[in-house]
Write a protein that binds this DNA or RNA. Sequence first.
DNA 1: GTTCCCATGTAACCCGTTACATGATTTT
DNA 2: AAAATCATGTAACGGGTTACATGGGAAC
Lengths: 185, 185
Amino acid sequence: VPTPLPDSTYAVLGLVDKLPRSSGYELVAVARRSLAHCWPISQTLLYRELERLDQLGWVEATRVEQVHAPSKRVYQVSEAGARALTEWLAQAAPTTGTFRSGLILRFFFAYRMDPRHVRELLDGYRRALHAQRDELIALIHKLEAMTTPESRAGRMTALHGLRTAEARLLWADEVEAADGEGNLA
Amino acid sequence: VPTPLPDSTYAVLGLVDKLPRSSGYELVAVARRSLAHCWPISQTLLYRELERLDQLGWVEATRVEQVHAPSKRVYQVSEAGARALTEWLAQAAPTTGTFRSGLILRFFFAYRMDPRHVRELLDGYRRALHAQRDELIALIHKLEAMTTPESRAGRMTALHGLRTAEARLLWADEVEAADGEGNLA
DNA sequence: GTTCCCATGTAACCCGTTACATGATTTT
DNA sequence: AAAATCATGTAACGGGTTACATGGGAAC
């Protein structure tokens, strides 16, 4: 049996499906904005997957010349690509995701840290969560304006990220409250 | 400058610090139980990092013979290791973690799926979150019994995972409610 | 006239994963 | 007799990352 393709391949395939006739550059921007919260993809990887999709015949590339910008290549899924996408979506999905946070990892060893530094970590985390939350709220509002099924699906996943960020902000408060009672330091 | 070591190295170093005179096998179990929620480490990787720590002189290994089980090697951090750990902890931590969920990724393309399958995905997710939540609750209860600073730090990170799982369970309800109103299908 | 936006890549690395191997002892 | 626990590894792979290169047009 051939080794199955990584999910990132299908992620990009799906992106092309959602935003036909987009360039790699545009897809990178969209991925950063809307997909990064459940499946981050770096610029390099996205371009690599686009090439793979092209070689698989799952997308078709078209060169587009531009006047006040460099020429670009835009993509759209082929029939074979559409089949591959729906087939992949029909399969059972892994229920377990992976989460890696260098910050929480360090928190795990907080007992070896200067209490002031613990506060700093917590503050930094809170700031990052705030920014993330604001981004997601803006995204959700933007998606609420549209009423297509595509935008609704995107809104639900964005909401997943938002609820997560909100819960973690509350967690930060919780920890700081416990800290205030002297239960941490 | 030498390339900095990956955080996983310090994660294992910290584990050895937290649980001195443990074998690799025991550390794997602990990592699965308590560290996996913020920094998953596979068995192979943990053993590899233990060897690296040994070569760095950051831990010292001791052979321990056993009667009713194979002999094992137990580890404890050296002075150099302790220095490295505190130094690492004193540095600024990255505020951004990475989250990858194949399930939520597929959800992003829900508009291309059979609505029944969407429900199945959601149910599977809910079950997985339930299991995770129960595990974390049990872990937190166990850690609450102890009152050491180490256990408190562990409890806070476990709480982080718990709050996250709870929020996502609520999200699943939210999505299903929207679905019931015909806003998704 | 420097800096930002468009647009697409190359090169190299290595972390982390999965699958498998081994073998003694203890429990079912 | 089979399965689970203890205990430590090897082998191979590739996915994802960071850093860097390039170059024209537009904006300030």
